[in-house]
Design a protein around this nucleic acid. Structure first.
Length: 828
RNA sequence: GCGGGCGUGGCGGAAUGGCAGACGCGCCAGGUUUAGGUCCUGGUGGUGGCAACACCGUGGGGGUUCAAGUCCCCCCGCCCGUACCA
């Protein structure tokens, strides 16, 4: 076929025309089913894309994320592995409830309708999911196991209820986990979060703080470094000591936590968190009114204001004194809001010389400042700049002359002897606040009985199914809408059979997503949350693909769940995700797409215009997976053209007479084919998908050239190249690949084909280009055999005209030979 | 503040310490075509030169090295995380 005729074909090729054909073919063939067959000897691979929230149809962000995950899954299918690549929906949550309230429908209706929309969009997008494993967290068959797991956590003391300050979102009318508060604002609705004292359920994630921290080492090099860093910072381990201070006129001492026990002799005052019970307890009676006034003033502040480091320090003297345990010194006790009630012990010893916050406070209230660590810096009392670094201890009795590290060791020893202190660690991580006062979630399986107290729902009564509440008021009023379902709330106590009431809160939806990758392994299993054997076969997940916005929340919770399941003997690994890729965002004109900016790009319209394959390929080729893609810079037309080139090669080859075995084909093209396949393989394995596409393009160009001005379309090497092109392209452009695969005479589907095998003999080059440098600058090049001897290469290089010219008038002092690629002649 | 990451053509981006700019977009030219589009071929970092070629060039400055986009130090800019955690 001539180029002109090819052009005619190209004009006719429109990938959109073949989408329906292959979608129904795939539905028939079901080629992406993972098998549990014991006789299946294929290596298993488990690849999970973070499951979507069904908030509407799929958008551009999904298009990128799932294009990446799908390319990797398809690669493993072609490598002949038993691939588990499932999909599900994270289907509980506030948006469904808010939408239902807005539209006067039921959250379930809204949710299931969106799930169907997304499911059909996923099929159109040619994702290689095992649809038989589909799950939805809002199904009772799923959330009953949330409840079951909650009860196991409860039995182990890992789920408990207590009073505490919580983050309360006044708009969503619910509490939020610390992880859901983004710089003082509700992660969901953006409202400013306020603090409230409430009785709530918690998961004791802090008990796993050390393991969550230490096990990040297992993930080193396999997870993005920044995610590991964020997790470590979030856990926030610090080491120091607890020190007891007696309080004048009180029987009970108060313990403080400090990372700098070495500076104990420099403590000149004592501060407790104003809004902790401790402040009231310590406060002298004639100062209680003043304290109450101060607390009221503090509580008026938003978290944002409170946390601002710019703000001037405030506080009140409580009219009592603490006694420094090492030198008996009386130091005044203050209450202030710069000390947090829920970190450490809620009380600190203030060492203004060596802590900036204490120094600011001391200067504001004219409190003494005593330097106990000598540094090269100027006196903090004069400069107003604390010296928190290393130095030699002074004014510190037995610590004088010691370094920071030895002083810490020494003072801990002294305190321990007297029973007044000990080494201690602290974490920023707080327990996971679980309760939500909303409807669309998993009911907490606890019954409150007036005589028996908190009674767990017996396993055989699970699931505790959400009451329908259809047609009823779901608008939150500070208590869960479930409280209104009288028939549901009032139950018999499982212990004493007396009248009792159900807990009306629902669980944070992050519980749902903490273990769904376990559920996929045996999605219909009814004997427990998952079949332990199935999990043993598939987990841990080999590759997890999703957005970095889950760097702490979801990923920390999943890791926590996995460790608890390990302790329960339900799995034999401690980390759920062996590898993690965070894909970038799809933005438009430099900004995140949003309704308010009006810069949203509709995925459906893009697909109508360019076809699925071109959109997928655009996403993949645009940048490395982890980088953002600015859609305004993209040109999907280029990918439409590229797909046309592939299609034309297939039609040209299909129209040519059948070729003999590949070995009889044009050697030059064969070498290019095998080298490019080898390159693509390595790039895909390294997740450099954009570069893999670039290599594919090179192979397409070489093949086009071979057809037009080389051995022609009937050559066996051209056919071999065409097959390889289509196989590689199938990772990114499944529709075009299928159509071409069929044109090339293969059956029944490219998804059932095998990744091309490279012949090592064709990968070895018989000539390589050697660069000849003089003083590091390229002056000539020569073609040499790859095995050229160093001495020979040196002589050849020195004799090169370009080198000789550059060496004129110079004396060669040294020749660096890196055979066969480079010679550098050093001359002066 | 603190912690981390990133700065490469007009643009998206390549480059185990060894030819900077692969591949693509865009642009320029040629071919095919009645024409446009499509398709095919070639060119395309900057400066100078008809050319061969030379010099400059990976945010700026210094260093290590035969050799630096890559490693080290300082500075500038942008992005992300975190935010009184004692």
């Amino acid at each position: 076929m001539t180029a002109a005729e090819g052009a005619e074909q190209a004009q006719r090729y429109d990938p959109r025309d073949i989408q329906d054909k292959w979608q129904s073919r795939w539905t028939e063939l079901d080629p992406y089913r993972a098998t549990e067959d014991a006789g299946d000897q294929r290596e298993r691979t488990y690849l999970v894309d973070m499951f979507p929230y069904p908030s509407g149809d799929l958008h551009m962000g999904h298009a990128e994320a799932y294009a990446i995950g799908d390319a990797l899954a398809r690669y493993h299918f072609l490598r002949g592995k038993n691939v588990l690549h499932p999909i599900g929906w994270d289907a509980f949550g506030l948006p469904a409830e808010n939408a239902a309230i807005r539209n006067n429908t039921h959250p379930a209706d809204w949710t299931y309708a969106n799930i169907e929309t997304q499911a059909s969009s996923f099929r159109r997008y040619a994702t290689s999911f095992d649809w038989s494993r589909r799950l939805q967290t809002c199904d009772a068959s799923y959330y009953r196991w949330n409840q079951w797991l909650f009860l196991r956590f409860y039995e182990r003391g890992l789920a408990y209820r207590r009073d505490g300050y919580v983050n309360w979102c006044p708009v969503d009318q619910t509490v939020l986990a610390n992880e859901q508060v983004i710089s003082g604002h509700c992660e969901r609705c953006g409202a400013e979060v306020v603090r409230r004292m409430l009785n709530q359920w918690y998961f004791k994630i802090t008990e796993y703080a050390d393991r969550l921290l230490d096990d990040t080492a297992q993930l080193e090099g396999k997870w993005p470094e920044r995610v590991l860093l964020m997790q470590r910072n979030w856990i926030g381990k610090s080491t120091g000591a607890e020190v007891q201070f007696a309080i004048e006129g009180k029987d009970e001492p108060v313990t403080v936590y400090t990372t700098r026990p070495d500076t104990l002799y420099g403590a000149t005052f004592f501060v407790v968190a104003a809004d902790s019970p401790l402040a009231r307890n310590l406060c002298a009676s004639d100062r209680q009114a003043e304290l109450a006034q101060y607390i009221a003033q503090v509580q008026k502040l938003t978290d944002i204001e409170r946390q601002s480091t710019e703000r001037e320090k405030t506080g009140v003297f409580l009219g009592v004194h603490a006694i420094n345990p090492v030198n008996g010194e009386r130091i005044p006790v203050w209450a202030a809001d710069y000390v947090l009630p829920d970190y450490g012990t809620g009380a600190i010893m203030a060492v203004p010389a060596h802590d900036q916050r204490d120094l600011d406070f001391a200067r504001r209230f004219k409190l003494p400042i005593r330097t106990v660590v000598e540094t090269e810096l100027e006196d903090p009392a004069e400069t107003g700049v604390a010296t928190p670094g290393e130095g030699q201890l002074i004014n510190s009795g037995p610590l004088d002359g010691l370094s920071k590290a030895s002083a810490i060791a020494k003072i801990i020893e002294i305190l321990a002897e007297k029973g007044l202190g000990r080494a201690a660690v602290n974490y920023r991580l707080r327990d996971w606040l679980l309760s939500r006062q909303r409807f669309w979630g998993t009911p907490i399986p606890i019954i409150h009985c007036p005589s028996c107290g908190e009674v767990p729902v017996p396993d055989e009564q699970l699931p505790v199914v959400l009451p329908d509440l259809r047609g009823q008021d779901l608008v939150p009023h500070g208590v869960s809408p479930l409280a209104a379902a009288q028939d549901w709330v009032n139950v018999e106590c499982p212990k004493c059979a007396g009248p009792a009431t159900r807990d009306t809160d629902t669980m944070d939806t992050f519980v749902d997503s903490s273990w769904y990758m376990f559920r996929y392994c045996s999605v219909n299993y009814e004997g427990g949350p998952f079949d332990i054997e199935a999990v043993r076969r598939w987990m841990p997940v080999d590759m997890y693909v999703g957005g970095v916005e889950h760097a702490i929340l979801h990923l920390l919770y999943s890791r926590f769940f996995t460790k608890v399941l390990y302790d329960m003997g339900m799995c034999d690994f401690t980390e759920p995700f062996t590898r993690l890729i965070n894909q970038g965002q799809v933005i438009n004109q430099g900004k995140a797409m949003s309704k308010s900016l009006g810069n949203g790009v509709d995925l459906g319209k893009q697909i109508e215009r360019f076809g699925v394959d071109a959109i997928r390929l655009t996403m993949i080729f645009a940048s490395p997976p982890e980088d953002d893609i600015d859609w305004a810079d993209m040109n999907p037309d280029a990918m439409v053209k590229f797909l046309g080139r592939i299609y034309r090669i297939a039609t040209d080859v299909a129209a040519a007479p059948a070729a003999g075995p590949a070995e009889t084909g044009d050697l030059e093209l064969r070498k290019v084919t095998h080298r490019m396949v080898d390159e693509v393989t390595r790039q895909v394995e390294a997740y450099h998908l954009n570069v893999a596409v670039a290599r594919l393009m090179e192979l397409v160009t070489a093949t086009r050239r071979a057809i037009d001005s080389g051995p022609g379309a009937s050559d066996a090497a051209v056919r071999e190249a065409a097959d390889a092109i289509v196989l590689v392209a199938s990772l990114f452009a499944p529709y075009t690949a299928e159509e071409c695969w069929e044109l090339l005479g293969h059956q029944p589907s490219v998804a059932r084909a095998a990744w091309p095998v490279t012949d090592p003999a064709l990968l070895t080059l018989e000539k390589v280009t050697c660069v000849v440098q003089v003083n590091g600058k390229v002056r000539d090049k020569l073609e040499v055999a790859p095995g050229v001897a160093e001495d020979d290469l040196r002589e050849l290089a020195l004799a090169q005209p370009g080198a000789a010219r550059a060496l004129e008038g110079l004396t060669v002092s040294r020749v660096i030979v890196r055979a066969p690629k480079l010679v550098n002649i050093v001359a002066a």
